[in-house]
Nucleic acid binder design. Structure first.
Lengths: 137, 137
DNA sequence: GTAACTGCAAACGCTTTGCACTCCC
DNA sequence: GGGAGTGCAAAGCGTTTGCAGTTAC
């Protein structure tokens, strides 16, 4: 999603476009490591010295409402934000907490088999696989 | 897991058996609705009027360490506790938050195909499927 | 007897909220 | 110009921690 598409998207949905909102949105959508609000804050306060955690949270909630990101509660206290709304597996290292996304055709195939078994309309999903990553072995 | 097995299990692992610990353990292991610490507290304080939330949390952490239960962070603030450590899908209503477990042979096949693709030793998993339950439709 | 466990209350830390100020549109 | 958005600080709230008293073994 490029900058102009994001701007158009907000306006279509009736939300104003501010530089903070745009920066948070561009940042989270480009990340694959499921950052926390604090990490986003630390990263953006260089360019936007007056940005506040409150604004980060409000923007993230807006993005979730609009269906652009997903909140993932892991068993740390903090929530992480995942910009990938499509079917994928979060490979989570149970020691260091590092998260890597994983996708294959097999995931798609087997998931759709399960969905059709269940006869329900899925609204989303979240699949975690816990393991020990190479660095922690 | 019956009462005697729980007692034996604690002793084998070198932990003392107290009436509080036993009650918490029996309660959570029998539940399929992934209760929160507060719900466990409210339920048990009838029989154990002096039991404290601190004890509930300490016991739940012990049970997790021992591999008897799993902590599930959903996007509420509270953590839920799931006594089913085996492969299953948490069907989560995205409106009311109700959770139902689901298991089939297809789920097993789905997961083992993915595991063998990935060539890693899984240490656990967590699969959520979000939908709208009948009551919320 | 003593080390582990409990209960209480205070501390913690992430997240939310309220409100005056600002800035898109 | 007006209402949505921001920034700040305080409040909220689930969870953790410390410690004195208690209990299992």
């Amino acid at each position: 999603m490029d900058t102009q598409s994001i701007i158009d998207f907000f306006r279509e949905k009736g939300h104003k476009v501010t530089s903070q909102r745009l920066a948070i949105c561009k940042f989270i959508l480009s990340r694959k490591d499921h950052p926390t609000a604090e990490q986003i804050y630390q990263k953006l306060r260089g360019e936007y010295p007056t940005i506040s955690l409150g604004t980060i949270y409000k923007t993230l909630h807006l993005l979730e409402e609009l269906g652009l990101i997903q909140e993932l509660g892991f068993n740390e206290r903090r929530v992480r934000y995942d910009p990938d709304m499509k079917l994928h597996i979060n490979k989570v290292c149970s020691k260091c907490g590092k998260i890597t996304d994983y996708k294959t055709e097999n995931v798609e195939k087997f998931w759709s088999a399960i969905i059709s078994d269940l006869k329900i309309k899925p609204k989303g999903q979240r699949i975690d696989l816990y393991y020990e990553c190479d660095d922690c072995k």
